[in-house]
């Protein structure tokens, strides 16, 4: 039993390490997104090279975040993976259906404002959050 618990200590440490790595990557991606969004206007006054660099760095860190998320999901146990899968399915479904309706409203001029991608990302993020809370409550 003690040997099994020791092995599991490794598993717990691995999950914690992957979660922490995902947190760092997400934080870095958030910072570079803000930099690429607001930098051209407020920091380097539309310097094309700096703007392109900021977008490239943002893309590179975004790809690293995707990999970190993959490793994080793979390190979770099967019930945690199921909760994440159901939350992602909900988020993807809501994002796809509502995003298309949102776009159609914009195209048909039934909506005064222009459709913004940030609204869709916000909706998907909140749906994913709600999905994980619901999943944890269901199995908790």
């Amino acid at each position: 039993m003690e040997e099994k618990v020791k092995e599991s200590g490794d598993w717990t440490a691995r999950v914690n390490r992957n979660t922490l790595r995902l947190g760092y990557c997400t934080g870095a991606w958030l910072v570079t997104t803000a930099l690429a969004t607001f930098g051209p206007q407020f920091i380097w006054h539309d310097n094309t090279l700096l703007t392109a660099s900021a977008i490239f760095i943002n893309l590179a860190i975004g790809l690293a975040t995707i990999l970190a998320n993959k490793h994080h999901l793979q390190s979770l146990d099967e019930m945690q993976q199921k909760i994440q899968l159901e939350a992602m399915a909900l988020s993807l479904g809501v994002g796809f259906v509502c995003g298309l309706s949102y776009s159609l409203l914009d195209q048909s001029n039934l909506m005064a404002a222009d459709a913004e991608i940030s609204h869709l990302i916000l909706l998907m993020g909140l749906t994913y959050l709600a999905g994980t809370v619901i999943g944890n409550r269901r199995y908790g």
Partner: peptide, 28 residues
């Protein structure tokens, strides 16, 4: 053994052991 002990031995979270014991989640 506590739930945490069993979870540690099976390399899953304590919540997963709790869900299995309560019949809320079927293990693979």
């Amino acid at each position: 053994w506590t739930q945490a002990d069993l979870a540690a031995a099976l390399e899953v979270s304590r919540q997963t052991i709790n869900a299995i014991e309560k019949g809320k989640f079927d293990p693979s």
